Amino acid sequence: MADKQKELVRIDKMDRKILEYLQKDGSLTNQQLADKVGLSPSPCLRRVRALEEGGIIVRTVTILDHKKLGLALTAIILIGMDSHTPERFAAFEEQVGEYPEVQECYLITGQSADYMLKVVVPDMDHYHHFLLNHITRIPGVSGVHSSFVLRRVIDNTTLPLGYLS
């Protein structure tokens, strides 16, 4: 199943500068952003809107401190599937998309698993319940391997824009 390759959107040095600031602080006002990148507000806003319309800026989010909210356990789950059909994968992906505990889901290669999930829950009891009552009940799941995060060494949401010309 090949995805359509998305057309790359060309950005210039100023766009890259705008994106670097917005990745670090998406709450900047247009005036603050314009001041930081050295533009007047109107051209800055036009550029941001063009980046949004071009699909470069997908959404703006607020990152929460999970531990302060009582979500102290992060698990990485490797999941094997019993068959490798588009229908089986689509059904799995639709089901895990309904679980707010799942922060990330990747279809992967190079492992003895088909999917890798990042799951955040309050504690081991909640994880056990989530695993047994949700993940293992999804049709097609044939194997589960869990690892638990001891410490976040790098937790970065910014993309490396230095590679762009």
Rank of each mutant, 00 (worst) to 15 (best):
residue 159 L to G: 08
residue 66 H to P: 01
residue 20 E to W: 03
residue 6 K to M: 10
residue 89 F to H: 06
residue 133 N to P: 03
residue 49 R to G: 12
residue 41 P to F: 10
residue 50 A to D: 12
residue 164 L to G: 03
residue 91 A to W: 06
residue 131 L to G: 02
residue 118 K to M: 04
residue 50 A to N: 12
residue 3 D to G: 10
residue 151 R to Q: 09
residue 69 L to A: 12
residue 83 S to Q: 02
residue 42 S to L: 09
residue 62 T to I: 15
residue 98 E to H: 14
residue 125 D to E: 14
residue 77 I to F: 03
residue 105 C to T: 14
residue 17 K to S: 14
residue 37 V to Q: 02
residue 54 G to N: 11
residue 131 L to E: 05
residue 138 I to K: 09
residue 141 V to R: 01
residue 49 R to C: 11
residue 115 Y to T: 02
residue 74 T to F: 04
residue 70 G to A: 10
residue 137 R to H: 14
residue 47 R to H: 15
residue 25 D to Y: 10
residue 159 L to H: 10
residue 160 P to R: 15
residue 68 K to H: 12
residue 63 I to D: 12
residue 146 S to C: 04
residue 37 V to M: 04
residue 131 L to F: 07
residue 64 L to M: 11
residue 118 K to L: 04
residue 140 G to W: 00
residue 163 Y to A: 15
residue 7 E to W: 08
residue 138 I to V: 15
residue 157 T to P: 07
residue 133 N to M: 07
residue 53 E to L: 13
residue 82 D to E: 05
residue 135 I to C: 02
residue 79 I to C: 01
residue 114 D to W: 00
residue 123 D to R: 04
residue 113 A to P: 01
residue 81 M to F: 05
residue 29 T to N: 03
residue 121 V to G: 01
residue 41 P to Q: 13
residue 23 Q to E: 05
residue 88 R to N: 01
residue 90 A to L: 07
residue 35 D to K: 08
residue 164 L to S: 06
residue 21 Y to A: 04
residue 3 D to H: 10
residue 106 Y to N: 05
residue 22 L to D: 01
residue 92 F to T: 02
residue 128 H to D: 11
residue 123 D to Y: 05
residue 25 D to G: 10
residue 77 I to V: 12
residue 155 D to W: 02
residue 65 D to Q: 04
residue 68 K to A: 14
residue 101 E to F: 01
residue 151 R to T: 10
residue 47 R to D: 14
residue 118 K to Q: 04
residue 78 L to G: 09
residue 67 K to L: 07
residue 35 D to C: 07
residue 161 L to H: 12
residue 133 N to A: 07
residue 113 A to E: 01
residue 66 H to K: 10
residue 130 F to C: 01
residue 96 V to P: 00
residue 21 Y to I: 02
residue 69 L to F: 09
residue 91 A to C: 13
residue 148 F to Q: 07
residue 147 S to F: 05
residue 94 E to I: 13
residue 113 A to C: 03
residue 156 N to Q: 13
residue 142 S to G: 08
residue 108 I to S: 11
residue 17 K to T: 11
residue 27 S to K: 07
residue 88 R to K: 02
residue 51 L to N: 09
residue 64 L to A: 11
residue 124 M to Y: 09
residue 87 E to P: 00
residue 93 E to W: 04
residue 95 Q to D: 03
residue 20 E to C: 03
residue 95 Q to C: 03
residue 141 V to D: 03
residue 4 K to Y: 07
residue 36 K to H: 12
residue 75 A to Q: 11
residue 27 S to A: 08
residue 81 M to V: 11
residue 70 G to L: 10
residue 140 G to Q: 01
residue 134 H to K: 14
residue 95 Q to V: 03
residue 84 H to C: 02
residue 78 L to A: 12
residue 48 V to N: 02
residue 160 P to C: 12
residue 56 I to H: 04
